[in-house]
Simulated assay, not measured.
Amino acid sequence: MTKYIYSTLALVFLLSCAEKEEVAKNWQLTKAIPITGVNAIGMAVTSEGIWLSDGDHNRLVLIDDEGKTIRTIDSLDRPMHIGNEGDVLLVPQYGNDEVSIFDQGQKKALVLTDSLDAPAGVSSYHQEKAIADFYNNRILYSKDGKEFISFGKEGKAPGDFYYPTDVQITENEIWVADAYNNRVQVFDKKGTFLKMIGDDQNMNAATGIFVGATELFVTDFENSRVLVFDHEGALKQILSEGVEKPIEVIQYQGQLLVSNYRNSQLLVFDWKEIPEGKETGEEAHDHDHDHE
């Protein structure tokens, strides 16, 4: 009987270890959705579906999961990296130096006491708002959505910008795609520089960013790839399959969406087990990759 008990305990222990053993996973291309006639620059997800900013055609386009156009908002002036507060869209218009708010079909301008020069990206987090002010080489940030502070100037030193294109507010930080310095910079909510990510990866135009629960995704436009980092800046994966001039990346319903600017496609990546024999040097980073 004693031997039987020990054998049973040993079997339970082994099964428990097997269950705890982590399976190597990474982001893998699942499909490419055609978005015919749309050169998507920015993306935002509302209850209606996926909104794309089509700057080349001066409009916003609402699509379904198959890429079909549901409706459009026209007569804009080069909308860029859009944001949203639930179903309310925030639209930076690069051409007329304005950030517009679309709420239930009604349009109004975000009121600022300062003038913008080609706003390229906007982010919202609860009441907070941030704007990437492209030609002014700075970020505007507001805790209440009304009173804004400004930080940054043209340059290459930490805290400086060379044409910021995208911005995202998280719980404690502000993340900026410092496009032509080829890096991402992170600041606290007073505008104090905290850290730099990707400056050692030979990026060529870091145009779009998305900060997930554990990962930072960066579109490396001219190199036709998306870089995946942890929040401390360690490179985890490089996505290049199907990627051609990527300009924006977001997470949506557990998937990763990447907009290919030139060939009018939306790429869908899923977090999946790495097939045996398919692991590359780039994918080897993912063994210890925490993912939520």
Results as ranks from 00 to 15, higher is better:
230 D>F: 06
158 P>N: 10
87 D>W: 01
18 A>T: 11
86 G>E: 13
269 F>W: 11
86 G>Q: 04
20 K>T: 13
99 V>A: 05
132 A>S: 08
12 V>K: 02
56 D>L: 14
285 H>M: 04
117 D>E: 13
227 L>H: 11
78 R>Y: 00
170 T>V: 02
146 K>D: 12
283 E>N: 03
155 G>L: 01
102 F>A: 03
99 V>Y: 14
216 L>S: 01
192 T>W: 01
38 V>P: 05
250 I>H: 00
196 M>N: 12
152 G>L: 07
58 N>K: 07
165 T>G: 02
248 E>K: 13
72 T>E: 08
265 Q>T: 13
217 F>W: 08
200 D>G: 03
212 G>R: 05
43 M>R: 09
73 I>T: 06
91 V>Q: 00
118 A>E: 15
128 E>G: 02
128 E>D: 05
133 D>K: 03
8 T>H: 10
269 F>T: 02
4 Y>N: 07
213 A>D: 13
26 N>H: 13
162 Y>W: 09
207 T>C: 05
51 W>C: 03
17 C>N: 06
106 Q>D: 10
172 N>K: 13
48 E>A: 14
84 N>R: 12
124 S>Q: 11
102 F>G: 10
143 K>G: 04
189 K>N: 14
133 D>I: 11
25 K>Q: 15
42 G>E: 05
276 E>Y: 06
